[in-house]
Design a protein around this nucleic acid. Structure first.
Lengths: 211, 211
DNA sequence: ACCTGAACACCGTTCAAGT
DNA sequence: ACCTGAACACCGTTCAAGT
C-alpha cells in the first residue's frame, strides 16, 4: 500500500531528518510531495495528525525490524534486538523520536511493540501481575535513553564541567569533583547501552526468580 | 532577584500549564507580562531561549525542593525524594517537562541535579567508574517515567485493548491475551512508581556490592 | 538599557471552486 | 474523492524610533 498517506509521512520524516522538526511544515511537506498544502488534509487530518502519523511510522519501522517471536531466540536476545533497533531508529530519526514522549500513540503498531515486550517478559518468567509494570519500566528506559542520546541530553554538561576541573570553588559540585578523573574519559556509548541492557536483564531475572 | 526574566519565564510556565505548550507564544507571554512582544527579546534571546529558560526554571524548582546532602538521609531516601519531586513537578508542569527530552539543558541547576545523583550513588558505594553511567540510567528512567505519565504515554493503549478482550483474532497480541485479567485492573500509579524506585535502588545496590 | 509600533515573511487552516 | 488558489488570523522576528 504505497498510498498517499504513507508518501506524505515519509516526506515529513525526511524533512525532519534533514532540517529538524521545526522545518516540518504543512507547506514544506506538501511541497516535497508535489502538491498543495490543502491536499494533505484529507490524508492526515491536520498538523497534529501529521505528527501523530510520524510517530506511528517510526513504531512501524520498529515492528518491521523486530525479530519474530517464533524464532528461536532467548528473551534476552529479543529484548536486546528490540532495544538496539529503537536506539538505531532514534539516531536515524531524532526529530520524530522526540515526539514519542510528546504524543502518546495508541496505534496498532504501538500496541504490537508493547505486546512483544509482554511476551518476552512472560518468557523470562516474570509473574503476570508484574508484567505491565515491568513493561512500562523497560520501554520507558529504552525509549528515554535512545531519545536522550539522539536529542543531545547526554554528552555535554558533565564534559563541560570537566573543562573547569579544579577551577570550581570548594564545596560546590562535590560529586563532579570526586569524579573528575572519570568524567574526563571519553564515553563509549555503544558499550554503555549494552551495559544498561545487561543491568535491565538482571533486574528482570530478579523479578522472575521471586516466585 | 525577581527580575524581569524570571517574571517572563513564570508567565510562560503558567500559560503552558493552563493552555498547553502550543499556547506559549511570544505574543501571549508578553501580553501576560503586560508588555510588547519585542520587549521579551533582551531578556530571553528568542523563542528558543524562552523554551530553554522554561526547562531551566523547572530544574530550578527541582533543586529548590531537593533535600540538602548535609541532612541525615540515606542515599535511598535522597533518591526517593529527588525522584518523587521530579514526578510531582512533571504533573504540575507537563508542558515544560516534555521539553526536558527535546532541549538538552546545561545550566547550573541542571549540573546541580546531576551532582546530587553523583553524590548519592557514591554514598551508595557504586564504583566511581560506574557512577556516570548509572546516573544517566537513573535520571533517564526517572525523567522518562515522570514525563510519560504526565504526557499521557501510559494509561491508554493497554486499557483500550482490554475493551476488546476476547474479540481479538487468535494469534494476534498473544501477550495482551495472556495478561487480559491483569490489564483489566486499575493501575495505582503511586504504588507503581514506588515499586520502580525500589527496583532501581536494588539495581544500584547490586552495582555497589560488586567490589 | 529597555520598550513601542509598524512591517515582513511565514504559518495552519477555512472556504469556494474545480475535476 | 481529491486537489487548487485565494484569503484569514496568527506567528516569530527585523527595524526604526522613542525614553
Amino acid at each position: 500500500m504505497t498510498d498517499r498517506r504513507q508518501e506524505i509521512l515519509d516526506a515529513a520524516m525526511a524533512i525532519a531528518d534533514e532540517h529538524g522538526l521545526d522545518a516540518v511544515t504543512m507547506r514544506a511537506v506538501a511541497n516535497r510531495v508535489g502538491v498543495t498544502p490543502m491536499a494533505l488534509y484529507p490524508h492526515v487530518g491536520d498538523k497534529d495528525g501529521l505528527l501523530d502519523g510520524m510517530v506511528d511510522r517510526l513504531l512501524g519501522l520498529l515492528v518491521a525490524e523486530a525479530p519474530d517471536a517464533d524464532q528461536e531466540l532467548t528473551w534476552q536476545q529479543r529484548l536486546g534486538a528490540l532495544a538496539r533497533t529503537m536506539r538505531t531508529l532514534a539516531r536515524r530519526h531524532p526529530g520524530a523520536s522526540m515526539l514519542l514522549f510528546a504524543r502518546p500513540s495508541v496505534t496498532p503498531d504501538a500496541v504490537r511493540v508493547v505486546d512483544s515486550i509482554f511476551q518476552l517478559l512472560l518468557a523470562a518468567g516474570v509473574p503476570p501481575a508484574d508484567v505491565p509494570r515491568i513493561e512500562r519500566l523497560t520501554s520507558t528506559f529504552v525509549v528515554g535513553y535512545a531519545v536522550s542520546e539522539a536529542g543531545g541530553r547526554f554528552g555535554r554538561g558533565s564534559l563541560d564541567v570537566r573543562a573547569h576541573r579544579g577551577q570550581l570553588p570548594d564545596g560546590v559540585l562535590p560529586g563532579h569533583q570526586a569524579l573528575a578523573e572519570w568524567l574526563a574519559r571519553e564515553v563509549d556509548w555503544d558499550a554503555e547501552f549494552d551495559a544498561d541492557l545487561a543491568d535491565l536483564a538482571l533486574l528482570i531475572e530478579t523479578k522472575a526468580n521471586r516466585d
